[in-house]
Amino acid sequence: MTIYSCEHEWEAMLTCIYEAWTSRKGQQNIRLVLEPIEQYTLFDEYIHVDADHEKAVKVMDAINQKISPFFYREIAFCSIAYEPYILDNIFRVLLLGFAYGEQALNMVQYEAVMDNRKIRKRLGMEVEHFKEFIRFHEVAGRYVAHIEPKSKLILTLGHAFMDRMPSEHWMIVDDVHMEAIIHPMNQDYYYRKLNEEELEQLLHTEEANDEYTDMWKTFFDAIAIEQRANYRCQRNLFPIWTRKHVVEFEHN
């Protein structure tokens, strides 16, 4: 079997799909994986693929024109998931897409489509969690939030928060993937990668807790009815791994 590998980045992933597609080795003889690879298998051939803008655009156009823009949006969204097999899954779904068109996404009889739905659902939940559980800290009239998601989902948050607070300066920092989106007042938001120095400095913004943070903690404690205490339900709905930067859980 031939295994194509690339970085977890959309352009590289599309290039990898292009290479695998054009190799003409037969889809059952090909697998696509994301780097870093934990352990190489003994008898397979590994081919590393670097991002190539032209090849990526070719795949992009093919999907948009031969299948549909909706299909493209769906798989592009799934591509940010942290599951290591996401690239291979996208490749399999694409093959079905080219064979059957857009409705391939509804053909749950195929395992790849079912897996894709599962990933999409989990990813959708993860994105929703972070839309809900992000906590901003006020630093001199600007609002800064830190998150530690599993998937590279920061770009999916931008639009939601721009709609929510269009006339505020705010910024969301992904501490794990070292990237941020920045929104200046009444303007569009933009994306940038952070270096270690910048991240180090940004981490201090969490120390800026003011009276409203304390009041929120007071409110959070007061609103629970002790006769109905149900920590198990709370953990179900507010998973512990998502609580990392959530101020109301800090004192616990």
Binding site: K131, E132, F133, D163, R164, M165, S167, E168, F220, D221, I223, A224, I225, E226, R228, A229, N230, Y231, R232, C233, Q234, N236, L237, F238, V246, E248
Partner: peptide, 18 residues
């Protein structure tokens, strides 16, 4: 300041799970 979403958004869950 603000918008509204028809699906509703839960921002936290109290100790009673609500």
């Amino acid at each position: 300041l603000g918008n509204s979403r028809a699906c509703g958004v839960c921002h936290s869950f109290a100790a009673d799970g609500r």
